[in-house]
Design a protein around this nucleic acid. Structure first.
Lengths: 211, 211
DNA sequence: CTTTTTCCGTGATATATGTCACACAGACGC
DNA sequence: GCGTCTGTGTGACATATATCACGGAAAAAG
């Protein structure tokens, strides 16, 4: 149950019908997480579905060997399709979700996600739009990995990242970028340096400023 | 309307309730396609959702520059999640679907797909299981492209392909494999030759026999 | 059968990316 | 201040993959 009903109201008014908003107020769980907090870890079971109110969350794939690949970002009023499907079938999660910044979200219990589909048309629409978006994101990711060279991929990476956090200064290390792109730190450092020489950005320790 | 009601009956008995099977008989459209036939082309709008009864279908991503990437295969009682979401939102398709062999399928009109979700529990389950499977497939694809080297990827490619067509002799040219893996023919030829030397397969013109 | 087309094999070479080794510089504790 | 981390820059080199340039072989067309 969410105490501050205005919060939910403001967030969903226009998207969801009043009865649904009321329901969300009743069974949803509001939570604030800090940058770096994990929402989902591989292997864990999912019992509720997050909807992001503000902030952004990074969804990654990590294999056993410590490799990582960025799948997509979630931000305003987005939700995680993976947890909608992964949940009901009761399979452990294949992915990792980490907050990119201070993020406010609401968790909806799985059985409600399912139940509401038939009770509230706008919810059904929401669920399917979420699937659609995530499919598009995944396809974009595959495009990028399969067709682009590293320098182009780095550019798309930076673009997506600035989009999701709505800012031009990224607090991130080369090492971290390298991990998310499944390559090595040196390569990223070199490519970034190149982009700096071209005037696309400015580098300093732990910081990349897009120009 | 499908004349041979036994056909649908046999295919779905056990998975769907009788009332749903009857509905499928009433509004579904049965079709047989040959190897190489296109079911969906990029840019086209989708008005019905295919369910594969037998045979197999290859789902690919193709970008403007003639590059291609294999996303996944569909076979027995699978369906295409992409067309479930892509349809309702009325967006043109981002993908290509080609029959890998002679394939029998049933097309369900989009509005029915949506309507049945709330009317038939087994249908809802079917739709969500389909989403889940396709997500898993996409993740496997990303894993493969991002983490594996070409020789490993080629192996997974061959494995998936034999799985989907249920046979050990693949009728395919090196050129075609190369296109689907977004690399060049020579590279594939070399790697295949290597696999032959190791005794994993036998090569001849237009044919790869897995051992 | 002869010609033509399509597919395959392979060396040589180019380019992109990965790896190693190490220097240096800013942050941070003490 | 000083030492200790952690992050960054860079050359040299290793490897994987892409490209070019062929020749030959099997199938298809004539």
């Amino acid at each position: 149950m969410i105490n501050d009903s205005q919060l939910v109201n403001r967030a969903f008014r226009g998207d969801f019908e009043p009865a649904l908003i009321e329901e969300i107020n009743r069974v949803g769980i509001y939570q604030e997480v800090e940058e770096g907090d994990y929402l989902i870890r591989p292997g864990s079971y999912i019992r509720s579905v997050p909807i992001i109110l503000s902030g952004s969350v990074k969804i990654m794939r990590a294999d056993a060997g410590g490799n990582e690949a960025l799948l997509y970002y979630l931000s305003g009023l987005d939700s995680c399709a993976m947890s909608m499907t992964g949940g009901p079938a009761n399979k452990p999660s294949e992915i990792t979700a980490v907050a990119e910044e201070k993020t406010r979200l609401i968790f909806i219990p799985l059985e409600k996600v399912d139940e509401w589909i038939c009770r509230f048309p706008t919810w059904k629409q929401f669920v399917f739009r979420t699937y659609q978006r995530r499919f598009d994101d995944m396809i974009a990711t595959i495009d990028s990995i399969a067709f682009q060279k590293l320098d182009e991929r780095l550019l798309t990476y930076l673009k997506k990242k600035t989009q999701s956090c709505q800012c031009t200064v990224l607090q991130v290390t080369h090492e971290e970028i390298a991990r998310e792109m499944a390559t090595s730190r040196e390569v990223i450092s070199r490519l970034l340096k190149q982009l700096e020489r071209v005037g696309y950005l400015r580098l300093s320790r732990n910081k990349i400023e897009i120009l």
